[in-house]
Design a protein around this nucleic acid. Structure first.
Lengths: 225, 225
DNA sequence: CGACCGCCTGAGCCTCCGCTGAACACCGTG
DNA sequence: CACGGTGTTCAGCGGAGGCTCAGGCGGTCG
């Protein structure tokens, strides 16, 4: 799950990033409204945390602009408590929810989760492709009846592939979603983790559900529904 | 189980917190009606203890507002004895029960428990996972036929894990529900208490029902129904 | 046919996470 | 005032897991 935080106060922004990453979100930070707008257009975030008071372009306008452009990523507004905030205005411009400063990062994460869940109500509770299943709540993967033990990263990758099953996903896409936008390490990491998944989910069962599409990326065989 | 106390008299509020926490409730306190309203919206409390006489916004209005917003957390009203209280009005605005000052903390806790149980009629009276059982009313835990003695905190944690059995719960979630929203101590406390539970409920019986999911949190093995 | 490029592989390093034991603070009780 | 029970903090440790790297293999293109 990937989240964009648009916040100019450096300390708060850094705190949010820490908190969100601790909760398993890949987090990007933008310091101005214009930057935020640009990044939101550029990447398919799962949710956006948007401060109202921002240099360059305030949160209301960022929000309204995105909606006008047909971008419906769930938006959580950050507002100061001192009343100069108009709830109606926020919701009018297309925000999905708001949190009043000061807030606990716990509260924020809870609301964010709710938002993402709601914003993606049609997503199935358990992901599957043929006899391969993954339950995001339980954090467990199964091939047929056998449980397969995966690490956090492996699960993140599997979840991503399952959500795009049947389609070819490029290594860059994978890096962007399973790692985060600012990952500057060896891209080979993707190959390494694909290998881990194959070793755990395919090889022991004589399968080849994770296919390499040379020059393009990888594809997880859909199996069926 | 998490409870919100809305009470402006500092001494009484503190007494209530102590009493409730001794009984294993995670307790938050709000000193004004508006704060209370805000917090009730913010967090999914299991019950709210609400004084009527409050600065800012009285209890009736807080209660009515919450109900209008579709928040049906069980509410226990605190009323003065001197008659300016109208029972009908309290129940009309959507309170579930009321207690007249002065009251014993025992009575309050009893009514609160009843309220929580009733307010969640679909919840089973006794929580279980395999041969592990916990009776929230009696405040007792059993492994098979053997009773296991737990402290208040341990029970609170066990209860939370049982209500989410099968699913992975993050440390942050645990902190938020078993401790209270403003807990700012060492998060390591969660590991410590997980360890206590394991030492009492798993190790002596050669079990491993509390599993750690590295990077994500903990999971209580569902066992079955 | 040879060179290159993309992907695979196995091994190894290192960080951070969770575990642990102990100590400390607090409180009610005898 | 000593004592036991409970809740919390702390620092050290061990290892799982995240990541890097260098070499190998095979398809592809000049």
């Amino acid at each position: 799950m990937r989240v964009l935080v648009v916040e100019d106060e450096e300390l708060l922004a850094e705190g949010l990033r820490k908190g969100l990453e601790a909760e398993g979100f890949a987090t990007d930070v933008a310091a101005t409204g214009t930057d935020g707008l640009w990044m939101a257009r550029e990447h398919p975030y799962d949710a956006i945390v948007l401060d109202i008071m921002l240099p360059g372009m305030n949160g209301y306008r960022v929000c309204a602009t995105l909606r006008e452009e047909g971008i419906w990523t769930p938006i959580l507004m950050l507002t100061a408590k001192d009343g100069e905030f108009d709830e109606a205005e926020a919701l009018d411009t297309g925000a999905d929810d708001y949190v009043t400063k000061p807030f606990s990062s716990v509260a924020l994460v809870a609301r964010l989760r709710a938002l993402i869940r709601r914003g993606a109500a049609e997503r199935p509770a358990v992901l599957s492709a043929g006899d391969l299943r993954f339950d995001p709540g339980e954090r467990r993967a199964y091939r047929g009846d056998a449980e397969v033990r995966l690490t956090a990263r492996e699960m993140a990758l599997l979840e991503f592939l399952l959500r795009r099953k049947g389609a070819v996903v490029s290594k860059i896409e994978i890096l962007d979603h399973v790692w985060d936008a600012h990952f500057e390490g060896d891209p080979n990491i993707v190959e390494v983790y694909i290998r881990h998944l194959r070793n755990k989910l395919d090889r022991p069962f004589g399968r080849e559900t994770i296919q390499t599409v040379r020059g393009d990326g990888y594809r997880l065989e859909a199996g069926d529904g």
